[in-house]
Nucleic acid binder design. Structure first.
Lengths: 224, 224
DNA sequence: TAACAGCCTTAAGTTTTCCTTAATCTTTTG
DNA sequence: CAAAAGATTAAGGAAAACTTAAGGCTGTTA
């Protein structure tokens, strides 16, 4: 899960980055509203957390602008003020949820899970593909109801492939899912993780598209 | 997908070329604004990436000129300056998107995907022709709902023929779709791929226009 | 604080895929 | 019927991906 965090308060931003990363998110942290608008064009992002008060361009304006561009990314608004006005304004501007400061990190996590689930149109919080089940809340993977232990990198790749199941994800895009924009590895790390995942989940689950990347096909079976 | 890259900075241009090619694009790199205007006449191009500051003719002028010529090619502008003025000017001049330097390659990739998707009309990202369905997102081809595995060259040719269905594409134009202008093969490679495609999709789908090239006729069936 | 374990990353060797070439066969056209 | 264009087939070689192993880092435990 890749999150764009737009927060100008250095202390809070730093704390949130660390906290979110510990929860397993890949965090891109930006402090400026204008930069954020550029960053939000990246459709490899899964979520955005916007502070309302920002230098450059305030969060509400920014939100309205990206919604005008038909950008459907799930957005959680942060604000210091707890007034109803702000809340209504925020939701009308296209936010998916709203969290007044100060807040608890656990509550933030819960809301992030909720809005990403809602956006994906999934009734259940689980990602399924055939015999594989991935539970984002518990960060667990099951194969035929047997738990499979995945390392954090393995999990992140599997999650990205399942979220975008049916699509080909390039090696570079998978790297971004792991490292954010801080350019990560200069090696065949992705290939190695794919190999590990295949050993754990069976050879056929992840397909190689030579020259393009990897994908998990859209599930043909008709479970909801 | 064929991209025209107009960038005079040698280092950046080289890096971008390599990066884009790794993502699966076919890249034509040009460093001069006047040359670019000529190059943009080629309607086999799918996308253009324009630097604003260029020798010969600056990017904005160039953009305005080609739009006056009713050239609808999707254009992404690059600029060193991050001012709102430039942005507005760029979008008003007919750019589809705008990216301030320095930028991340992944972000560029995301925007390219976004603008080509936007242009494709988002409603049905699938290319259909009779029993054949091609899904650019999943990079899959189906024949009567049965998946057909295509190699990267086969896929590229089929995609080109379907995008321009009803038109005859010369062998040279198909070669350009695969290799860009750096003249690629000196052999009958295209004929071989056509042959492979026919074996997989049936003899009648791709028609030979002797002396001219190949085409897939416009679909007669009336599905939307 | 030192030993340990688990994980990330790198790198090297191996295997597989498929791109390209070229030679030969078939069809079309004047 | 001859010449040109295209179709078919097979094989060498290069590029991509797979596999395996080991060094280094981090966090944990005695």
């Amino acid at each position: 899960m890749r999150v764009l965090l737009v927060e100008d308060d250095q202390l809070l931003g730093d704390g949130l980055s660390v906290g979110l990363e510990q929860m397993g998110y890949t965090v891109d942290w930006i402090t400026d509203g204008n930069q954020a608008e550029a960053a939000l064009q990246d459709d490899a992002l899964d979520l955005a957390i916007l502070d309302i008060s920002l230098p450059g361009q305030d969060g509400l304006t920014l939100l309205r602008r990206i919604r005008q561009q038909n950008n459907p990314i799930p957005v959680l608004l942060l604000t210091a003020r707890d007034s109803l006005d702000d809340r209504v304004l925020g939701l009308d501007s296209g936010a998916d949820d709203y969290l007044p400061k100060p807040f608890d990190l656990g509550e933030l996590a819960a809301r992030l899970r909720a809005i990403s689930r809602r956006r994906a149109g999934r009734g259940s919080p689980l990602l399924r593909h055939g015999a594989i089940t991935l539970d984002p809340a518990g960060r667990t993977v099951h194969l035929n109801d047997q738990p499979v232990t995945c390392t954090s990198r393995e999990y992140a790749i599997l999650e990205a492939l399942l979220i975008h199941s049916g699509q080909v994800l390039s090696r570079q895009r998978l790297e971004e899912a792991l490292y954010g924009w801080d350019d990560g590895v200069e090696s065949n790390a992705i290939e190695v993780y794919i190999h590990h995942l295949r050993k754990k989940l069976g050879k056929s689950t992840i397909q190689t598209i030579r020259g393009m990347g990897y994908k998990i096909p859209k599930q043909a079976d008709g479970n909801v």
